[in-house]
Simulated scan of single mutants.
Amino acid sequence: MTKKIAFLTATEGIERVELTDPWQSVTDAGHSAELLSTEAGEVQTFDHLDKAETRPVDTVVGDADVADYDALVLPGGVANPDALRLDEGAVAFIRAFAASGKPVAAICHAPWTLVEAGALRGKRLTSWPSLQTDIRNAGGEWVDEEVVVDGNLITSRNPGDIPAFTKALLDAVG
């Protein structure tokens, strides 16, 4: 059965491979992927600090409904989640998605948005190492592992973990 997977990003600062590789895995598995962002138009991806490709936005997050999606993917990049956590609509969507029990997959710096959404109390997760204090302060348990699944949260540390990250996501959506 085809599932609809939301990928939520800010308008720039997205680590390209953390968006494009899971997206490709989702569509290769026969599911549909939709790009949500804080503004209409396009988002700018990056290869670390260098501009890479742009991608068209399908839906502005403020117009999106959690009920329309089977899972949520939060790509990293440093600037992307930092910008998302300042957008009240994006934070509200992430909070509602986490509370829905549907899979939420966050890689690298993306768990910053889960901190902002108040979704980490009592959860075990991983991320880019610089987030560990933020995660602990938000009530989560930070570990240094390739992929961590705790309830509906799926987390990974960096682009090198993408194969394990996408496998866990696909296993979660069935």
Rank of each mutant, 00 (worst) to 15 (best):
F165G: 00
L74M: 06
A138R: 03
L125V: 01
L36H: 15
R121P: 01
Q44K: 13
D50C: 10
A92H: 07
G13C: 06
A33N: 07
D21I: 06
T166K: 00
A6N: 02
W142C: 11
P111I: 04
D68K: 13
G62F: 10
N137G: 13
T59Q: 11
H109V: 00
V143K: 07
E141C: 05
F165K: 01
D87A: 07
T155M: 04
A172C: 10
D28S: 10
L74W: 04
A117W: 01
V60P: 00
A110Q: 03
S127C: 13
L86G: 14
A105D: 01
L49T: 12
V147R: 00
Q132I: 08
A164P: 15
D63T: 13
I107V: 04
A29M: 01
D82C: 12
V148D: 00
F46K: 12
L72E: 04
A40D: 04
T9H: 06
Q24G: 09
S25E: 12
R121K: 15
T45E: 08
V26F: 02
R16Y: 09
G77I: 02
K3Q: 11
T133A: 11
A99Q: 04
F7N: 03
T126M: 06
V60D: 07
K4M: 10
E53K: 14
Q44H: 15
V43K: 07
N137F: 02
E88T: 06
L35K: 08
W142P: 02
E34K: 11
D134M: 01
P103R: 01
V115F: 01
V17H: 11
G122Q: 10
A33K: 12
I14C: 06
G140Y: 10
G76W: 03
A6C: 08
T155K: 01
L84P: 05
L169R: 00
E42L: 13
F165N: 04
V60G: 11
I162P: 00
V148Y: 02
R136H: 08
V91N: 14
H48N: 13
Q44W: 06
W142K: 06
Y69C: 05
L74S: 03
G41W: 07
V104S: 01
V91M: 12
A117H: 05
A83H: 14
G76E: 00
A119Y: 13
R136N: 11
D21G: 12
T113M: 08
A29V: 01
V147Q: 09
E145P: 11
L114Y: 08
M1A: 07
E42I: 07
T9K: 04
H109Q: 06
D161F: 15
T2G: 11
A64Y: 15
P103S: 09
T2Y: 12
A71S: 09
Y69I: 05
R157W: 08
D171T: 14
W142V: 09
I5V: 11
G118D: 13
L36I: 09
A64H: 12
I5T: 07
N137A: 15
E53L: 08
A110Y: 09
H31A: 03
H109L: 01
D21A: 15
T45L: 10
F93Y: 15
T11S: 08
R85W: 14
